[in-house]
């Protein structure tokens, strides 16, 4: 994972005209009404939108937690829409690192065991996975917290553990759902710096958020409304799509 090689021409996620319908009681909810999106390797993408816009549904699709009602989804060239539950589990295990708003750490397991979990499901032997987990925890700055349980860690530290867990299987994408939603702004900034570093080192990051100043860390912003893509700045600034009251100074400074 060398820092300067940008494989921007390789497409990781290629979705075309996907829809997702839910049956809620008597009504059919059209959560996604035909979304097309391509995400390349080493992109830093934010998916934005108000609640009910379908961004959570899209995130579940991208994360292979759910399959579309119609449309095509290719992940690294493999058709995901027709995969079985166990095949999806295997994709999630090897290709996707999840970071949740509520951290979702196992409460009774220490940091090391939490980070090890994806490696257990990948079938890695105990010594190697312990080494890997410890290594990744050091990378996120938790050298001295390997054997702490989540309730012995601060919110920021917990999210770092969760990020380490997302990184440990060396996934194709990191999918973060409101990663700073449960953190104060200072800790949130630290986490965003961590994401920035990961991006700089070649990772592909997809942020799902409704906060513009969090989305501003990303290089590309996709806005959803009513199950459709409202705007996609395509990674070129896209100033016309930004909210007027919240211009984007951060976007310019990073490059």
């Amino acid at each position: 994972m060398t820092s300067d090689t940008r494989l921007s021409d390789s497409i990781i996620i290629d979705i075309e005209n996907i829809t997702k319908d839910y049956v809620m009681g008597e009504e059919i909810v059209h959560a996604l009404r035909g979304v097309s999106l391509q995400i390349h390797s080493n992109e830093y993408l934010a998916i934005m939108g108000p609640s009910g816009s379908g961004k959570s549904t899209l995130m579940n699709m991208l994360g292979c937690l759910d399959t579309p009602s119609s449309g095509r989804y290719e992940f690294n060239g493999r058709d995901v829409s027709s995969m079985t539950d166990d095949e999806l589990a295997s994709i999630r295990n090897r290709e996707i690192g999840f970071v949740f708003q509520t951290f979702n750490l196992l409460p009774r397991a220490d940091s090391l065991r939490n980070v090890e979990l994806p490696l257990i499901y990948a079938g890695m032997d105990p010594e190697t996975r312990r080494e890997r987990a410890a290594h990744v925890l050091r990378e996120v700055g938790l050298d001295d917290r390997l054997h702490h349980k989540p309730n012995e860690l601060s919110g920021g530290q917990r999210q770092r553990v969760a990020i380490a867990r997302a990184l440990v299987n060396d996934p194709s994408i990191i999918l973060a759902d409101e990663p700073t939603g449960n953190l104060d702004s200072k800790t949130g900034d630290e986490i965003m710096t961590l994401f920035e570093n990961l991006y700089q080192r070649g990772h592909t990051i997809i942020l799902v958020t409704h906060e513009a100043d969090i989305a501003n860390h990303a290089r590309r912003t996709v806005r959803l409304r009513d199950g459709l893509i409202e705007s996609d700045d395509g990674g070129f600034g896209g100033i016309d799509n930004l909210p007027v009251e919240d211009p984007l100074p951060a976007n310019a400074t990073v490059y």
Binding site: D86, S90, R92, F98, Y121
Partner: peptide, 16 residues
Amino acid sequence: TREIGTRKALGARRRT
């Protein structure tokens, strides 16, 4: 339930 969801997101299969 949430723990099961997390485990599944991290790659736990049905059998697991």
